[in-house]
Design a binder for these strands. Structure first.
Lengths: 210, 210
DNA sequence: TGTCGAGACGTACAGCGTACGTACGGGAGG
DNA sequence: CCTCCCGTACGTACGCTGTACGTCTCGACA
């Protein structure tokens, strides 16, 4: 057994979250998984909150933000957004943890830097680039929240809406659209909105240079 | 002192969240605020999770979803999104609670019904309406999360990014745009993205009926 | 060999959600 | 009127949480 260190603790935490959900995370539980006393963890991590920050940072830093500066900016934006969405695939039950802690570390700032430089190179102004960046962040995070099911206990929310549950008198549209509401191809839905937004900001850019 | 009932409990919970943040909510604390034994709460609420659902529902049901069916659909969509954002103003520290529990009750379904019927009346197809609805939901929720500061302890995140904190070698864009990143007029940012997205889907509609 | 520091660990405390048992008070039935 | 019953209020208790504090062990170095 290798000696206890921060990396092993973070790995155990991520493993625990993916196996049993974020609710199951406790210092005692992690220590038990590592076959170690609870307080030994505190030699490497100041407290639970910092541990979750470290979890978030570890997951964020293994996202592949490959960027081709030669490509058209619309493609680059699309790739960056999709890369972020990878988190929902690689660490579904940790997604909520990553999204709910904004990091000031390098791991958290790198995606921001990439996105902003892409937008600036595309020709957007300073304020505009920040605004557009914020719109994308909001959309991506909102999409991830829906995808992983914001309820932390079970990862995939299935059959959230059944046609038989809704009163068609009160909610005719929900009743009529129930088949579409209950089924959700997350990747297709994400790309739909992503293309919509890229199209919109491309329109703004074209309109301005016109 | 009126007798204990579900309404008073929910009101006390909301009050507590707004005063001290969602972390401060505990059954013991609520009971103390109501000058009541802890277990008395369980005569009116099955458990803490259900109480938080009730909190979410109460807040959601007091949002003013006034809708003018005669207005242009773009305006109606804008109004509905803005109405949802009201939550961040009326109950800032409860926003995270509302957003993080999807409700199957009438209070949770009404906004969905309204939005879907608006989109259908605008001329969008069944699948398209659901897709667009999901895009807006993602954007609105993502925006609210940023606005209330996803960290639940303190409501307004101030000075999250300081220019002096970032290494301009590693993060030149963040350094250059720090003034724009640190300041944030939430209402303006929200409307910016909202208009962007409405413009985009209006474009789709025009393109199809062309 | 004596000393020292770092890391592992046990104990303890305050707080949590809530299962369970009890006590009380008012309305219904005899 | 008396009795019964049931809903409500409440106290206690259990197992869990994060973590402050003190202790112990062990390898490195003078």
């Amino acid at each position: 057994m290798p000696p206890l260190n921060r990396t092993r603790i973070v790995a155990a935490a991520i493993d625990l979250i993916e196996r049993e959900g974020a609710d199951a995370v406790s210092m005692r539980r992690i220590a038990a998984d590592l076959e170690v006393g609870v307080m030994s963890l505190y030699n490497h991590v100041p407290n639970k909150s910092a541990l979750l920050d470290a979890v978030s940072e570890a997951i964020l830093s293994e996202v592949e933000f490959t960027d081709d500066p030669a490509a058209h900016w619309t493609g680059r934006v699309r790739m960056q957004a999709r890369a972020f969405r990878q988190i929902a695939h690689t660490h579904p039950r940790s997604t909520m943890v990553v999204v709910s802690r904004q990091l000031k570390s390098a791991a958290g700032m790198l995606p921001v830097e990439r996105a902003l430089s892409t937008l600036r190179e595309a020709g957007f102004g300073e304020r505009e680039a920040v605004q557009i960046f914020r719109v994308f962040i909001a959309y991506v995070i909102g999409s991830l929240l829906r995808e992983v099911g914001v309820t932390p206990t079970f990862a995939p929310v299935h059959g959230a809406i059944r046609a038989s549950d809704v009163d068609p008198e009160l909610f005719p549209e929900i009743g009529a659209l129930a088949p579409h509401l209950s089924a959700c191809d997350h990747e297709a839905e994400f790309d739909f909105g992503l293309d919509l937004m890229i199209e919109a900001i491309a329109g703004r850019l074209a309109q301005r240079t016109r």
